[in-house]
Amino acid sequence: MELTVYLAGEIHTPWRDEIKTLVSKKGLPISFVSPQTNHNFSDEIGAQILGEQPNKYYHDNAASSINNLRTEIMLKKSDIVIALFGEEYKQWNTAMDASSAVAHGKPLIIIRPETLIHPLKELSNKANVVCESVEQAVRVLEYIYK
């Protein structure tokens, strides 16, 4: 049985590659999807497809519509969502993706540091599993196959 895992979270560190490498080393039959991880491409996609917009609000709105469509499709096709919350970057998109997973009834694994226990308490309560590291999340995936 192959699972598809949606990787929600910031795009500035290599955490997705770490998960993919660990999963590959364990030989788990898992494929991965994610939001668009090319920041500039994501920000400019609205203007690239729909044309130049009259101001920054409409520029961002056009990109957001296309990004939200892509994210919804990828998330709905996934079997599990892993949402990584780090300390360094703003987490609005991660919280939105994790909340969407809950709303769509997708199993959710949250990775977050101890310092975010309080700010994420409600969302963590809705998750299936909350852990503190990429390694722990991969061990949860591995357990599914045992």
Rank of each mutant, 00 (worst) to 15 (best):
M1V: 08
M1L: 12
Y6D: 03
L7V: 08
D17L: 05
D17G: 11
D17T: 05
E18A: 08
L22T: 05
V23W: 01
V23S: 04
S24M: 10
K25N: 14
K25I: 09
K25M: 13
K26L: 11
L28G: 07
I30Y: 06
F32P: 03
F32N: 01
T37C: 01
T37W: 12
T37E: 12
T37Y: 07
T37Q: 11
N38P: 06
N40A: 15
Q48P: 04
Q48S: 10
Q48E: 06
Q53H: 05
Q53R: 02
N55K: 08
N55I: 04
N55C: 03
K56S: 13
D60A: 08
D60L: 11
N61Q: 14
A63F: 05
I66F: 03
R70G: 01
R70P: 04
M74T: 00
L75T: 04
L75A: 02
K76D: 06
K77D: 09
K77A: 10
K77T: 05
L84H: 13
F85K: 00
F85A: 03
F85E: 02
E87A: 10
Y89F: 15
N93Q: 15
M96N: 04
A98G: 12
S99E: 09
S100E: 09
H104L: 15
K106L: 10
K106I: 03
P107W: 11
P107M: 11
P107N: 13
P107T: 08
I109L: 12
I110Q: 03
I111Y: 06
P113F: 07
T115V: 13
P119L: 02
L120Q: 00
K121P: 00
E122Y: 14
A127V: 08
N128V: 06
N128P: 01
V129E: 12
C131R: 00
V134W: 12
A137H: 06
V140I: 11
E142D: 14
I144T: 15
Y145C: 06
Y145W: 12
